[in-house]
Amino acid sequence: MPAFSHDFPFDPTYGHTVDDLLAVPAPPAPADFAAFWRARHEAARAIATVPVVGPVEEVRDGFRVHGVTYTSVGGVRIGGWLVLPDDGPVEHGFVVGHGYGGRDEPGPDVPLPLPRSAALLPCVRGMEARGRQTGIPVLADEHVLHGIGSRDTYVIADCVADLWCAASALLELVPGLTGGDQGEGPSSLGYLGESFGGGLGALALPWDDRFAAAQLTVPTFGNHPLRLTFPCVGSGEAVRAHHREHPEVTGVLRYFDAATAATYLRVPTLTAPALFDPSVPPPGQFAVHNAIAGPRELHVLTAGHFAHEGTEREAKTLRDARERFFAAHLG
């Protein structure tokens, strides 16, 4: 296990060895877990997303980057970026989730894992810079608690829907990507998500067969009962504090457990959990990987949410791995 010098008042490995991490299970699903999420997915798929593409904002690494907006559940307009190849046809597509705090620009998600790809990079509701919504807190520690009193009002459910609607908008804007349940032939749509986006992806992917493959990096929301026992410096600490005052929230969290959802996830998935992570406890990350029902590939990171001497090297190795992975699994 890694031994980093740090000043956290807890051990970001949480005392787990690799063998321990590979044995962390998923909590059992509520009896109506699948029905709940399938109903949410059906409602999101019925939305007319009406995507609107803005002018080119930048050109980088062989891709054009446009601003884009689209409609999600509740009539909310979601903003983000549409990425298109600077030249030639589109052969692959991606929906790209983001970490907690949102994104101010496409950042390191461009270039995409494969050439001749298009992508929609949304800022889910409430998040910077293009997902701001009146009444939804921007700060992660407040956002993660918004509507948490009920599974039907919890903001995380609508953030998942924002990803489904992003897929609908991308497939409308780039109809050549249609596949799976939207057209003939294999799907050429993939998902990329890190941290918050990794957890949202695990919740979203099992119910949407338009996606053919996914990468989940340091995913959050895995094994909530265990997470509630671990101190951290991420949004999970806000949930822990809320739970101390409102222990009944565990009934809601059961429906938003990324590891539980992963037991329904059957598309090939590359996971990149970390051994040391002060923001997203590693046992929860590995719980997501361990629970995946379909083909899975494990790429272990030394640390997540923590800069160290090998950060750039590990990032490059992971980029290389995801390129190989998506080349093998996207039609």
Rank of each mutant, 00 (worst) to 15 (best):
F63M: 06
T260L: 11
G126E: 06
P55N: 07
R130N: 11
L173R: 00
V110H: 02
T49K: 02
H242C: 10
F63I: 06
Y264Q: 08
L120H: 01
G99T: 12
A287K: 08
P89I: 07
G80H: 04
E312L: 15
A23H: 15
T317C: 11
Y264D: 03
T17H: 11
V249Y: 01
V252Y: 05
F276H: 03
S5T: 13
L228M: 07
F94W: 04
G149V: 06
V155I: 15
I78A: 04
A214H: 01
E314I: 04
G74R: 02
D11G: 09
S195Y: 02
G199Y: 05
L298W: 02
Y255D: 04
G147V: 07
A261Q: 04
L253D: 03
L139F: 10
L301H: 03
G88L: 07
C165A: 07
A140S: 12
G310K: 09
G135V: 07
L177A: 00
V24E: 15
A328I: 13
L170G: 00
G180P: 04
A214C: 11
V24D: 09
T217S: 14
A140K: 06
A307F: 15
D158E: 14
V96S: 05
L22W: 11
E312N: 12
L145M: 05
G190R: 01
Q182Y: 06
T220V: 15
R313E: 14
V110E: 08
G199A: 11
P9C: 13
A34M: 12
G99L: 10
F230I: 13
G190C: 08
H224C: 08
A157R: 03
F276I: 10
P281C: 12
F196M: 14
P295H: 05
A213V: 06
T263Y: 04
R210K: 02
V90R: 03
L301P: 03
F325I: 08
F94M: 04
G93S: 10
A293G: 04
V144T: 09
V18W: 08
R45S: 11
R40W: 12
E57H: 05
A118R: 01
R132N: 06
P281F: 10
G75T: 08
A35V: 14
R244F: 09
Y191G: 05
D152K: 07
E194M: 14
L228E: 11
A287H: 10
L170I: 00
G131N: 01
S150M: 08
A119L: 06
A238P: 01
P30A: 13
H246N: 15
F276L: 13
H41Q: 14
